[in-house]
């Protein structure tokens, strides 16, 4: 039995779905951020698996995975800064209470 590309793609699909579930169901802002990290990781698994299995994609796959990792780190830093500001203003991290801009 040989290990092909398909198992990696299915695992990535599963991680992506878990990330989506996390984003949709969590009400804590930091929980939503974690869901986004899961989604980005799922994409990264796809990139690296394709770097390994798709001919001529060895360099691109890894480089895009590295770029995604760096961007995700920056995104987490900014998101946490925003969440902390929100917490300072409204004393909660429940995103359902972030409705000051309505009306």
């Amino acid at each position: 039995m040989e290990l092909g590309l398909t198992p990696y793609l299915i695992l990535a699909a599963f991680l992506f779905s878990c990330g989506l579930l996390c984003i949709v169901t969590k009400r804590n802002a930091i929980g939503i951020l974690m869901g986004v990290e899961l989604v980005l990781n799922a994409a990264n698994v796809n990139f690296v698996a394709c770097a390994r299995y798709v001919p001529g994609f060895a360099m691109e796959g890894q480089i895009f995975a590295l770029l995604v990792i760096v961007l995700a780190a920056g995104e987490a830093a900014i998101a946490l800064a925003i969440i902390l500001n929100f917490y300072n203003n409204s004393a909660t991290v429940d995103v359902d209470r972030a409705d000051e801009l309505r009306n």
Binding site: G4, T6, I10, A13, L20, L21, R52
Partner: peptide
């Protein structure tokens, strides 16, 4: 409920796509 249905539907679609895509690429 909504989130679960959404996630399962997405997972089904993605698995369908990856089954089609993955078979064309054997171990290098």
């Amino acid at each position: 409920l909504v989130g679960g249905i959404l996630a399962i539907a997405l997972f089904a679609v993605l698995v369908h796509v990856s089954l089609g895509f993955g078979e064309n690429h054997p171990k290098p």
